[in-house]
Simulated scan of single mutants.
Amino acid sequence: MTTLVLATRNAGKIAELTRLLEPYGVEVLGLDRFPEIGEIPEDGETFAENALFKALTVARATGHIAVADDSGLAVDALDGAPGVYSARYAQPGDVPGGEAMTQDARNNAKLLAALQGVPMDKRTARFVCCMAAAAPNEETLVAERAWEGRIALEPGGDNGFGYDPLFLVPDAGCTSAQLAPEEKNRRSHRGQALKALLQGWPEFLARAGEAQ
């Protein structure tokens, strides 16, 4: 069995990726199992730069294959923002009562404020995910996919995390946070990026020196 370390401490992301990887017979560990690894900076200019840097950092530190993703929301009416800054889009002072909010709630409140008055047909957006795998010998594998949608006028749903309550899936008639987890995984940018990554998995494992 191949051991994978997911290069994140985000509990929602760990749970989601663990479900996606279960069919492939791998042992999945979160970064919380390796407290000696500090915060990994995400200061790249693209999702791919951030994902590769995180995966390589964790693979070198743990001696296991690491899988990292960098994902975010790109809103057309905001010229692609928040983009690579999605997770840290809002500061406490950016929205009323922000000091008492979670980071996700602040981000969503700032996004809604930025889009105030923008009609629904102009609220097009996409979730983008770049997923990277890295081995201790520094072999890498990268895949990137997007999930098209719109930004809702108000939050809806309790599933998911991040911007899911605001990401409207037009053909489903609901937000990402209102989809069942299995349906979200089938549609999502993260699920599609992982599917693309796994298409090259056997060759990657061979280059990484892992048994198949």
Rank of each mutant, 00 (worst) to 15 (best):
L141K: 02
G97V: 10
D79E: 07
D76V: 09
P155G: 11
R106K: 12
Q91G: 14
G98H: 14
R88I: 10
R123H: 10
C129Q: 01
A114N: 13
D79W: 00
L153S: 14
R150T: 15
P92D: 05
E99Y: 08
A113R: 15
Y85M: 11
G157Y: 00
F127H: 11
Y85I: 04
S71W: 02
E99A: 14
V84M: 00
E138A: 15
G80T: 06
D70P: 06
A133C: 11
R106M: 08
G149T: 14
R123C: 09
N159V: 05
D79I: 01
A133E: 06
G117S: 12
A146T: 14
C129M: 07
G80A: 08
E144K: 14
T102D: 12
I151D: 04
I151F: 01
D158A: 12
E148G: 03
D69T: 10
D104G: 11
N159K: 09
W147I: 12
G156H: 05
N107V: 13
G157K: 00
T124K: 08
D121Q: 12
L111W: 01
L112T: 06
W147L: 15
A114P: 05
R145D: 12
M131F: 07
A134C: 12
A81D: 09
T140P: 05
P136E: 03
Q91D: 13
A143Q: 11
E138V: 04
A125Y: 01
P92T: 15
F127Q: 06
L153N: 13
Y89I: 14
L141D: 02
D76F: 00
A134V: 09
C130E: 03
L141V: 12
G93F: 03
M120P: 10
E139P: 06
A135G: 09
P92E: 09
R150G: 11
G80W: 00
T102P: 09
A114H: 11
V118W: 04
E139I: 03
L112A: 10
A146V: 13
F127C: 10
L141H: 03
L78G: 02
K122Q: 15
A152Y: 01
D121M: 07
E154P: 02
L78R: 02
G149K: 05
N137V: 09
N137M: 03
V95E: 07
K122A: 15
G117R: 03
A81R: 10
A81Q: 13
F127E: 02
M101V: 13
R106F: 06
N159L: 08
R145Y: 05
M120G: 12
R106G: 12
R145M: 12
L73M: 09
A100Q: 14
G156M: 03
P92H: 05
A113W: 03
K110L: 14
A113E: 11
A87K: 07
P119Y: 05
D158W: 00
P82W: 01
A125H: 04
A68E: 04
D158V: 10
N159Y: 00
A68K: 08
A134P: 08
E144L: 08
E148L: 12
M131K: 07
